[in-house]
Amino acid sequence: MTGPIARRALALLFWVTAAVIYLPIGVMAVFSFSTARYQILPSPDYTIEWYGRVFTDGQYSAGFVNSVLLAGSVSLVATLIGFACAYSLVNARFPGKAAFTFLILAPLAVPLLLVGIALRIWTTMLGLQPSLPLAGVGQVLYVLPLAVLNLRNRIAQLPKSHEEAAWALGASRVRAIVDVILPACRASLIATFILCFTFAFDEFVIAYFLTNFSVTLPIKIWTTLVTGFDPTINALGTMVFVFSLSLGVTAQWLLMRKDR
């Protein structure tokens, strides 16, 4: 129903859009190897000095360690809570289930800035000091909808009969979940963990509002950007891009593979 000329035009539109999306990332990658302090083309010479700086500058490595620890704990907690919640949502019938599902997904429909500000105001009122664990709680909120959606879809696909067989053999609800449901969801659980990790690792706003002195990688990048340029950012940005991209691709691959 689409003529050959229209088809060509649409393909052209797609590739032009993709090229525009990738252009700045390519530019950043090129400059990350340039010896020039500022972006000038053609680059005078090429170097891997900026990549070395990422590892020798203590603040970047501290930020990286903080980010990995934070994102790791956040996605672990979100995956566990998300699984419990998803399982119950699939199996339970209770009044207000629709409203509750809506509440769980609501953080998707609220700008992160609002979540960050509201949490900052709320925790100040409660007298809690801004800290990494507090930022972690905020980030769990942010990734939980993703975890619940992913796992709910998977659990709903499972044939009910396997779990019922376990019950017939005398397994308790928890035992059946551990022996039957969890193994069947393995790929989805790993994918959910990775996906939550990717989002938590790059999350900036909540971490910025709920920490004072601890620095995560996105916060370090942000403060470097607004206080003055440092070419190390090009190298770091390229590395973060490759890192997030490989995590994202792995998660998607796991999610698609389970369908077979």
Partner: peptide, 15 residues
Amino acid sequence: LVAPFWTSFTIRAFS
């Protein structure tokens, strides 16, 4: 189309 958006918003804006 989707992959570049998995990386940090900040880094994309900066690039």
